[in-house]
Amino acid sequence: MEQAQLMFAATGALIFVFGLVAGLRDDSLLGRIIAINISGVGLFLLLVALAYRGLCQAADPIPHALVLTGIVVAVAASGLAIAIGRKLDELRNSSHRREGDSS
């Protein structure tokens, strides 16, 4: 059981850290959102792996509830970020068009 816990938790930690760094470094909005989501899943994997108690025993339910909360928060935040990005594109395009008209 400990072996599985460690293996999944380590995988989670790896994905968490790399996602986080990519989220800071990425230069496209969509790329950033993907990276932050990936990083979040890595963290959730860490939590759930540490809640695992072997095949014959039920896992600790509290981290599961926490992760469920986290999944919903992540989709909400991604949706808001995409909406802001869309509005931003709209504004930029309209200002480009205005510049194009005046020149």
Binding site: F16, L20, G23, L24, L29, R32, I33, I36, S39, G40, L43, G70, A77, L80, A81, I84, G85, L88
Partner: peptide, 15 residues
């Protein structure tokens, strides 16, 4: 947008 995304990264670190 930058505020939102950095806030998310901060929350992930906290979590």
């Amino acid at each position: 947008l930058r505020y939102l995304l950095l806030g998310l990264i901060g929350s992930l670190l906290y979590l």
